[in-house]
Design a binder for these strands. Structure first.
Length: 243
DNA sequence: ATACATGTTGGAGC
DNA sequence: GGCTCCAACATGTA
């Protein structure tokens, strides 16, 4: 479910509920659900992998983590985390983290760090990267404060596109590759969104879960790299290491 | 059927 | 106090 582009699609799917009033709320989430009854959805926003449902006096923040799912006007048998019921229709969330955000969103989130936001600011990303020369690129891409919305799939595909080995250090990348890194973080996310919308994401994977490099037919390595030891796929032949 | 996976956090331990 | 590391969460799929 997660990764920024998937959240964009959730947002789109929830659009019909904007302006609608919550008449009941259920589920096993421990947040006090009473306070949102009778509140209207003012807007649906997102920051990276955070889904933000803005109500009259508070925002609901939903994070799907690894296994989160949701259903609109449908239910399934697994434990319900949060349901929002309207006069007509309902939204059901499962296996996700639910929180309230009391502050105005602009105070909580820097939307220019979100690779899919209209206000995405590549120059700010570059400034942040400059401060972490020792960091490996595979870790830098997953840093939500720099590339909000980028997840493990996007990480692997971006590095393959720009032909950079995941264990390269940010400080050792030539400037043109820093530019390419930042540019492709957004570009690939846009492609991801386009493909996911058409249920055609998987068939466009070039390295993620792959065994053979589509460029030079060499073997794709799978290793658990970076601080978080996430699955990393790469080709030693075409992806250059800047150690 | 056992292991693994698109992710983050909170607390233990140093 | 602050840093790092890892368990915990939890479900669908191969």
């Amino acid at each position: 479910m997660p990764e920024g582009p998937s959240i964009q699609l959730v947002k789109e799917n929830l659009l019909p509920f904007v302006g609608k009033k919550i008449i009941a709320a259920g589920g096993n989430s421990k947040i006090g659900k009473d306070r949102i009854i009778n509140q209207k959805i003012q807007s649906i926003q997102s920051w990276g992998k955070h889904l933000l449902i803005c109500l009259d006096s508070v925002t609901l923040r939903i994070h799907f983590l690894m296994f989160g799912t949701y259903l609109i006007n449908e239910r399934k048998s697994t434990p319900l985390r949060l349901s929002l019921r309207f006069k007509k229709g309902e939204v059901n969330f499962y296996t996700c983290s639910v929180q309230y955000i009391e502050e105005p969103l602009q105070e909580v989130y820097d939307f220019s760090a979100d690779v899919l936001n209209d206000s995405w600011d590549p120059r700010k990303a570059r400034q942040k990267l400059k401060k972490i020369p020792e960091t490996k690129v595979c870790d830098a891409l997953l840093d939500q404060q720099t590339f909000s919305g980028v997840g493990n799939i996007i990480k692997n595909e971006v590095l393959f596109r720009i032909k950079v080995h995941p264990e390269s250090r940010i400080g050792k990348l030539p400037p043109r590759l820093i530019s390419a890194l930042i540019k492709e973080a957004r570009n690939y996310s846009l492609d991801f969104l386009k493909w996911k919308r058409n249920f055609a994401l998987k068939k466009h994977y070039l390295v993620y879960t792959k065994k053979i490099c589509p460029r030079d037919k060499d073997h794709i390595h799978k290793e658990y790299l970076g601080i978080t030891k996430r699955r990393t796929f790469f080709c030693n032949t075409c992806q250059v290491l800047y150690p």
